[in-house]
Design a protein around this nucleic acid. Structure first.
Lengths: 227, 227
DNA sequence: ACCTGAACACCGTTCAAGT
DNA sequence: ACCTGAACACCGTTCAAGT
């Protein structure tokens, strides 16, 4: 494209310079996370990451096995912002809920991260720390170990899903409005209940998430694993 | 259908024959669902659907706005297999749970469908019927309308997520095993609880899903929306 | 009205070749 | 050891041109 022989150009282009500062895994992960935050999932492609680092896509494969593995690393990097409040003596529930609120907030603030969290198995120091923290609080709450294990899964997935839903709504107001007007146009004879609760279906911001957490925790306290 | 005995008609290759049986939206959706069931999400591409119908990808756009819209239609088509048991006089809970088990089973049996359900806003007769059904059962159970609306969302999402997790595990045993051995290799000093419940983290088939449903329902019965 | 071919602007991943 | 260019086998979507 812009290759025509430019006689004024005496300076050697960066491209032909033999040595470049070498890449690093950390650099790649950070660049990927930046792109993800700025442009969402479609922004985090191998080719775009490479371009942002001024190299070719094949160069990344020295440090990263494939996109999936990179995604896991990016998710974990993103989760370093989650705040785990210090444990309290009098209440196990409050810090637990606060941690989950922080988790949901982090995901909510970068929709791409929320999307990743739904499709990536979370292995990495930060997600492990979060799980460990939740398990400890549930243990303090006297919840069985099997229930606690399953419960952590349920709570984390709920957080991710709420964040993803909310984020994708904010991003593309189009789709949501379309869905809402669609619900309003429903036949009240065929779907009486649905039409009746149509407004509630789309309502509720943070309090809806809190409600869900309360529901799950309440339920766990009263349900046995062998019921 | 085929024009009989056209005197000017000499045998020509199918490719050069001007007229072909026209496509239809229904045909496209069904073909897409078949491909999705057989080959998962990567199998359901515009290009592959077109090839299966012996045409070019651009031909599909006469009947379908884009891949997203098609996905919604495919999801709904797939949900026609969900069984909604007749309402019972003595129990609202059993039919509700059975419907959700059926929902999860349908998604579980074709992993691609589970994946779709996590990324597609479910508008279509079959998903509406399911929501309406759940709302009615919850109403019978005496659950507030706001709680019911939010609860349906929670229950459906939980079903989809469990199906997706299970399906993606079965599909690629590699990733799961890797995750499991990874958990086993964790530092017990840093993650004592996590190592302790490591086995439970990956355990539990259908009973785990039932447990989650019980938890959510129990919790809903005891949680107010304004708590 | 419906279908087609060709093009546009993208993907992830591999691999021989360079330094 | 690291980087590169080029290639392979894919994507979704558009559009002028055909029938």
């Amino acid at each position: 494209m812009n290759k025509p022989t430019d006689p004024t150009r005496t300076i050697v282009s960066r491209r032909s310079r033999p040595a470049k500062e070498p890449l690093s895994r950390e650099q790649i992960v950070k660049t990927a996370l930046d792109l993800l935050k700025q442009e969402g999932t479609p922004g985090m492609s191998m080719r775009k990451i490479a371009k942002a680092l001024d190299t070719g896509p094949s160069s990344l494969y020295v440090y990263v096995a494939n996109l999936q593995e990179l995604s896991a690393a990016v998710l974990d990097e993103g989760l370093c912002e989650v705040v785990l409040p210090e444990a309290q003596k009098d209440s196990w529930k409050k810090p637990l809920i606060d941690a989950l609120l922080s988790y949901a907030k982090v995901l909510y603030e970068s929709p791409g991260l929320a999307e990743l969290s739904l499709s990536t198995i979370p292995i990495g120091p930060n997600s492990l720390a979060l799980s460990e923290y939740l398990l400890q609080r549930l243990h303090e709450g006297g919840i069985t170990s099997t229930q606690a294990a399953w419960g952590v899964d349920l709570l984390l997935f709920y957080g991710a899903s709420v964040a993803f839903e909310q984020a994708s709504r904010n991003q593309q107001g189009t789709t949501l409005q379309a869905a809402q007007t669609f619900y309003q146009s429903l036949d009240a004879k065929r779907y009486p209940m649905l039409v009746g609760v149509q407004a509630e279906m789309f309502s509720g911001g943070p309090e809806r998430f809190r409600w869900g957490l309360e529901v799950i925790l309440q339920g766990m306290l009263q349900t046995d694993t062998r019921s």
